[in-house]
Design a protein around this nucleic acid. Structure first.
Lengths: 331, 331
DNA sequence: CCGGCTATGCAAATCGTTTTGCATAGTAAG
DNA sequence: CTTACTATGCAAAACGATTTGCATAGCCGG
């Protein structure tokens, strides 16, 4: 059935399309009685403004993109999927309540053609330095915000995922009882790694030992992490706690511990960052951090909306990260 | 920077906007030489057709929705998130390659307002009978397809997730060596449950025993499943294998087995359907089925496109489900 | 009675495409 | 020399809203 247009509604209400438009938008005063008549009639006729026509005029798409340069689907396995998708799910809910649709953007393949993709703004999750999707959107003049600061791009507004606080939280917990803590992060340059490494360096200094930190190539995934962890543990027998922010890597560390016959948590304490299924289901269950990703997602969307509207982004506080202590680091 | 319009490009090329339009769309013949000139110039000027204007004219939104009535985010915990999100990730990639954006639609809250959401089509993942989102979209005349048939809605085209074959696969594997198999599904009426239950009934009959099947209320999640499993196992001591398609429920069953002191797989063999993180990370690791969700997602999108275009949907074959045998059912 | 204000509403331009219907020139067939 | 047809391209009308710039009427104060 063809939907009725503003012209038909106007005719039915005995006014001009202009008046109908104003009645709904409130951009100009319309006699309350007239307005009521229009609204009632619109309801009866099932009139809904054609979003496409509106967009041509107003220049908005009503869509925002959520993107991560981390290989999206199979590429790096579902390793990172959980984190991203938890954000995606929360963001979709929030976006909708702000009358925006959330569109998932896969990582940019060299040949992919995003020309038809018309969005009002984009959220990039944990961008790396020189993030390709970030470049892509900002080159097009699309407003962009990030979840986790974009390294080297202080001009990009971002929602803090509190990596510094999170790192401290993990480190102090792991280091209790004079445990000596090592660190395993990833090779890509993401802000969360950078901050964590910095906090770790300071932490080791405070406690008077040499930092022991290694990086895993992300595409190697769990297996690579296991190998690196083995190296680290063999080479540094005094390390008896490991901070491993990436949950997939932490699972790898568990494997390494097993093959080295180091019991967790007795011989090795372990904590990871993202409290997803991996942390909850691994054996032993892993201590992790509640990052309040739902709040983060919501804040990111509202930040993006503010940027799109050219408003001053009002920084909304996110609940501080919360350590969820589990078996892997129980005293 | 204001992007150049078709009028400017036309002027620069010394032709009319019409000709430019035809040059790109190919809907009418344009002299090859003229066309080449236009294309070259467009490239130089960085002309890209304004998608919004195009859509107003052609009536497409360039967006498809992916929806599931399963509580999306927190509601039922991340239980189902994995399955849905694996599809979402694959679908996003495929959609983009077909020049469509994939938009995530959260479940319909009573108060949610989807008016602004304008999509060309929708994919519903495993709809229940009387699925609200399915109703919503089809009431609006939006083309809809489903992943997994919509119970009672044979008019909705769907991509088969091969529940019958999957069920047989699991049951025959579990029932080897004269094991007696029980079944745990969910309360909602999804096609996959329905088919699985039917296959199971037949299977039990073939093997000459009374079927033992219970349903778990989905919102109870893992804990509820554990309770139900305990009841089932206590009440039917001869059951020494369980087919539990929902992975979150299967995790619950593992808990139940532990508290009943039934070792898995020796005292109880177990298999689940979705081969996600749960299956891979649980202890013992669970036998599951590779459903080829990437292929399913791709097929769903192409099916939807066919429906949107009013074409005859060409049924594309999906690779048969593949049993991934793991510890939970090892002989 | 006049200038100036408010309240109310309409006409027409605009957004940037796509598409339809015609126009012209050239050419081949009868 | 018509007629008929092809090749090529343009003008103008959509698409359905939003927005700007008037227009009218009524009213007030001086």
């Amino acid at each position: 059935m063809a939907r009725s247009t503003i012209v038909e509604l106007a005719r039915a209400a005995g006014v001009s399309p202009t008046t109908v438009s104003h009645a709904f938008s409130g951009r100009r005063y319309v006699d309350p009685e007239t307005k009521a008549r229009i609204v009632a009639l619109a309801d009866k006729m099932g009139y809904r403004a054609n979003p496409r026509a509106r967009r041509l005029r107003t220049g908005g798409a009503g869509i925002i993109a959520l993107a991560s340069s981390m290989p999206f689907a199979i590429a790096a396995g579902p390793a990172r999927l959980g984190f991203l998708m938890e954000i995606a799910a929360a963001a979709a809910v929030t976006a909708l309540s702000r009358h925006l649709a959330l569109c998932l953007v896969p990582p940019l393949e060299p040949d992919s053609n995003l020309d038809a993709l018309e969005v009002d703004g984009a959220i990039i999750v944990e961008p790396t330095s020189d993030d390709r999707l970030l470049e892509f959107f900002s080159a097009r003049g699309v407003p962009v915000v990030s979840i986790g600061r974009a390294p080297g791009r202080d001009d990009i507004p971002s929602v803090d995922i509190q990596s510094t606080a999170t790192a401290r939280l993990m480190l102090e917990h792991l280091g209790a009882n004079n445990r000596r803590v090592g660190l395993i992060t990833g090779e890509q340059r993401r802000n969360s790694y950078i901050e964590t490494e910095a906090v770790y360096a300071a932490f080791a200094a405070e406690n008077g030992y040499t930092p022991v930190a290694l990086r895993v190539n992300e595409s190697g995934g769990e297996g690579e992490a296991a190998a690196i962890a083995e190296t680290l543990l063999r080479g540094n027998p005094d390390i008896d706690a490991l901070c491993v922010p990436v949950d997939a890597f932490a699972t790898g560390v568990l494997t390494a511990a097993r093959s080295l016959n180091r019991s967790v948590p007795l011989g090795l304490r372990l904590a990871t960052r993202y409290d997803g299924m991996r942390a909850k289901l691994s054996v032993p269950q892993m201590t992790a951090v509640n990052l309040h990703l739902d709040q983060v997602a919501e804040a990111a969307i509202d930040l993006l909306i503010a940027v799109m509207e050219g408003k001053d982004p009002e920084r909304r506080p996110i609940a501080p990260p919360l350590l969820v202590v589990r078996e892997s680091s129980a005293t």
